[in-house]
Computed example of a mutant assay.
Amino acid sequence: MFVLCSEIKIGSVSFKSVHEVQIKRSIYNLAATAIIKIPVTAVLKHTGEPPAHIETASTIKAGDKVEIRLGYDNSFNTEFVGYVKRLNYKVPLEIECEDEYYMTRYVNCVFSKKETTLKQCLNAILPEIKVASCVDLTLKNFVINNKPGSWILGYLKKEYGLTVFFDINGNLYAGKAHDVKGETVKYRLRYNVVKDDDLKYQLANDVKLKVKAICYYKDGTKIEGEIGEEGGETKTLYYYDVKDAKELKTLAGEELKRYSFDGYRGKIETFLFPFSLPGMVAELDDPVYQERNGTYFIESTEVSFSTSGARRTVELGIKA
């Protein structure tokens, strides 16, 4: 029998039991979030001091560093690293947290150059943050007057179609959704997958999809094009500095094929192990219908942990 275990550090205190933890992260969300619920009075351990009963709300404040480690039988994975965003004075005490995105809320930036590169922009928001991956994009007439970094990241996401998120190590990604391809995690339906009710198998011929393609050039201009069928889902995809409209149409056609595939879409519910994060690849094995086996990009994960059990919900995207 596997015994749940947790290790949570907030500022200078740490504790090994909680009412509940919920963690959400996605390649499509700027911030990964966590909610920790703990007793109003608890046994907390200050660094270098013996454990003591203390009012938890008095020892925790907004901005405190947070690390959440969860697992079974004293075998842990780091599930979240970030900061306390706010305290909700409920019973139990509710602590809202954000990952490295939290820090961008408190950095105001000014851009007044006629042009700047995306990487220069990202480095200006948080100079100490490692930009793990970003597209080669020039931002023309990029004039920002004293806006917080969080606003700028949202602007880049909205106006340029960038997928912007921080990984669990605090590294920043800004680019196309599936350019990141991490480690492979193996799942077997009806074995280490607890629930697959939200998983649906689709045939490429049944998918009605239209792709709207937008390309930004280094001189600040852009071109647009569409390809696909009417009457279904429309996806807007962004490209950067392709050769011409013909190449843009070719790239959009290739992307259309990626989304119109024979395979699974949806979510699976698993235990905490195997460990997975957005950006990783799920290798799905179906022992009943082996012709449906395949590998898929993981787009989001949700972790729930409490005294009644722990689960990870994994959302599958297009085939990897």
Rank of each mutant, 00 (worst) to 15 (best):
residue 156 L to E: 04
residue 161 G to D: 01
residue 163 T to S: 08
residue 163 T to A: 08
residue 164 V to M: 06
residue 164 V to R: 00
residue 166 F to W: 00
residue 169 N to S: 14
residue 170 G to R: 08
residue 171 N to Y: 04
residue 173 Y to S: 02
residue 174 A to H: 01
residue 174 A to D: 01
residue 176 K to V: 08
residue 178 H to S: 12
residue 180 V to E: 13
residue 180 V to D: 12
residue 181 K to G: 11
residue 184 T to R: 13
residue 184 T to G: 10
residue 185 V to T: 09
residue 186 K to L: 04
residue 187 Y to L: 13
residue 188 R to S: 13
residue 195 K to W: 04
residue 196 D to T: 15
residue 197 D to K: 12
residue 198 D to R: 07
residue 202 Q to T: 12
residue 202 Q to Y: 15
residue 202 Q to P: 10
residue 203 L to N: 14
residue 205 N to P: 04
residue 205 N to G: 14
residue 207 V to D: 06
residue 207 V to R: 14
residue 213 A to V: 05
residue 214 I to Y: 03
residue 214 I to R: 05
residue 214 I to V: 07
residue 216 Y to I: 15
residue 216 Y to N: 15
residue 217 Y to Q: 13
residue 218 K to S: 11
residue 219 D to P: 09
residue 221 T to F: 07
residue 221 T to G: 07
residue 223 I to L: 06
residue 225 G to D: 07
residue 226 E to R: 15
residue 227 I to G: 04
residue 228 G to M: 11
residue 229 E to P: 06
residue 231 G to S: 07
residue 231 G to E: 05
residue 231 G to Y: 06
residue 231 G to F: 07
residue 240 Y to F: 12
residue 243 K to S: 15
residue 243 K to A: 15
residue 244 D to R: 11
residue 247 E to Q: 13
residue 247 E to G: 07
residue 248 L to T: 01
residue 249 K to D: 10
residue 249 K to W: 05
